[in-house]
């Protein structure tokens, strides 16, 4: 029996360290770890004030409908625009149906230093006219620290790459119910648009 102790002890130590580091073998990336740390669903969307592309301020809870929230930054060289192009596809498929009556899209910028109301307005116009159910916004009245805390509470990983304009970040999309609770998190890297559309419909029509 004594002969088994050293290998067993080594195995237990390794498993415990790996278990703790990956949040119980559920989170292997910084993105999924940050999301898991925010807690299980449903949970409240952290309270914040936003300013939209027209300069009007609002709370998410004021919408009184389902809102699909995602985060981008406008100087992103790649993935943010791909994600928003896919969101546009989702919007077009649902427009006139559950959008904008029961569901809205909300794209929030990460970049407090470089993005402003003028930039997000021009950015929205790139997607064409008549997107009444899609709001582009910036956090209002938040310092970088309080915005970072907001993202942590939400479960979004974001980190500015030193010396560049790049921000590494999660691409999760949060479905917020009319009562202000996050009820579903979509990962567009793993779920295709058809799946997301079906899920959105089923949540809204519940």
């Amino acid at each position: 029996m004594k002969r088994f102790l050293p290998p067993l002890a080594a195995l237990v130590i390794c498993v415990v360290v790996l278990w703790a580091w990956t949040d119980g073998f559920r989170a292997f990336t910084v993105f999924s770890y940050a999301l898991n740390q925010a807690g299980p669903l449903p949970r409240a969307f952290p309270d914040a004030v936003f300013v939209n592309q027209d300069g009007a301020t609002f709370h998410l809870q004021d919408k009184k409908k389902f809102v699909l929230v995602n985060f981008v930054y406008l100087d992103c060289p790649d993935v943010c625009h791909k994600i928003n192009n896919r969101l546009e596809g989702i919007y077009r498929k649902l427009a006139g149906g559950i959008i904008p009556a029961d569901l809205e899209l909300l794209t929030i910028s990460f970049d407090l230093q470089r993005d402003d109301v003028r930039k997000i307005k021009s950015y929205k116009q790139l997607f064409g006219e008549g997107l009444s159910g899609w709001t582009f916004a910036l956090p209002e009245g938040m310092t970088q620290e309080s915005f970072d805390q907001f993202l942590r509470t939400l479960g979004v990983w974001a980190r500015r790459v030193p010396g560049t304009a790049l921000i590494n970040h999660s691409i999760y999309q949060f479905l917020v119910a009319p009562n202000g609770e996050i009820v579903k998190v979509f990962d567009p890297a793993r779920e295709d648009d058809r799946q997301i559309i079906e899920e959105l419909k089923s949540w809204v029509q519940k």
Binding site: R3, L5, P6, A10, I13, C14, V17, T22, F28, T29
Partner: peptide, 30 residues
């Protein structure tokens, strides 16, 4: 002894696995 050899090799494997995890790689890069 064989048991300590195996224990050591388990530790080495565990270490290699740890440093292959994307979360570990990210933190090491930051």
């Amino acid at each position: 002894s064989a048991e300590w050899k195996i224990a050591t090799l388990i530790f080495v494997m565990g270490t290699l696995i740890f440093w292959m995890l994307p979360r570990s790689v990210d933190w090491a890069a930051f």
